[in-house]
Amino acid sequence: MGARFTGDLAELRYEPVAKRVRAVASGRTFADSRRAVLVWEPKRVVPSYAFALSDVRATPIPSDDALAAENPVQLAEGGPPVLDPRTAFAVHTCPGRPQTLAVDGVTLPGAGFRPDDPDLGEHVILDFSAFDEWLEEAEPIVDHPRDPFSRIDIRRSDSRVQVEVDGVVVAGSAAPRLLFETGITPRYYLPREDVRMDLLTPSDTRTTCAYKGHATYWSVGGHRDLAWSYDEPLSDARDIAGYIAFLTERVDVVLDGERLPRPITPWS
């Protein structure tokens, strides 16, 4: 099944959703619908929301293409190239036309895209980052829409996990929590009391995950942003609140006495 999904990354894909979805900017609701569609442009690994034109409270106006660079990466060694999710919305990988949206004096240049596709021809895809707030029903969502074919599972474990940085043991625990996310290498979250916090230096980096929430980071031994934590995670990730994970692509992990190979991912 994983190979099937990976094989489809080169195609334009879409999936209807039953949730009520709203997009808000500067206090104005630009779109409100119970028939929104999740759309993955070719090579995109996270979806965007598209709305029927009748559910968009602005008349989309065709605009010029914006200059933006593709940022291709591989999800796994030997896998097909995909676009890093941080690649700007202005990068489009299917035929269509960028759109400017305006409601009550608030103008969002290039915040929409109308694909040239017979099934989506009466829809406009919206740039998640162009809006201040997104709601599924009455629940805010962050970073990007969640993929219905992707999920996270968190499991308490009694395996022994040891983390080394440049040969120095910085953490070791027999009570980790393992996070399994579709298409991503497993992550080992360790209780803070089992981490050498004296070896970690707080970083000013902050990131957001649609499934887990807002993360804070630490640098270790001169390696920037090597560890992170979700202090107030979203509901699906509450079991890792306050736990610390390390970037297994750039540290050494010993699991139950076996040294694991470093995975090859976009974060290597």
Rank of each mutant, 00 (worst) to 15 (best):
M1V: 02
L9A: 10
E11Q: 13
L12S: 02
R20I: 02
R20S: 06
V21Q: 00
V21G: 01
V21P: 00
V39L: 04
R44H: 11
F51L: 04
L53A: 15
A58S: 15
A58E: 12
T59P: 05
T59S: 15
P60A: 09
I61H: 11
P62Y: 13
S63N: 06
L67H: 12
A69Y: 09
E70A: 15
N71R: 15
P85H: 02
P85T: 06
H92K: 11
T93A: 09
G96V: 00
P98R: 02
Q99I: 02
D117T: 03
D117L: 03
D117A: 05
P118Y: 07
D132L: 10
W134K: 01
F149L: 11
R151S: 14
R151C: 12
I152C: 05
I154Q: 01
S159M: 11
R160P: 00
V161G: 03
V161K: 01
V161E: 05
E164S: 10
P176H: 09
P176C: 10
L178S: 04
E181A: 11
I184V: 13
P186E: 05
R196K: 11
M197R: 09
L199Y: 04
L200M: 10
P202F: 13
D204K: 13
D204T: 14
H214Y: 07
W218A: 01
V220I: 15
V220R: 00
G222I: 03
G222K: 05
R224I: 08
R224S: 14
D231E: 15
D236M: 08
A237C: 07
D239Y: 09
A241I: 03
Y243T: 03
I244F: 02
F246Y: 09
D256W: 02
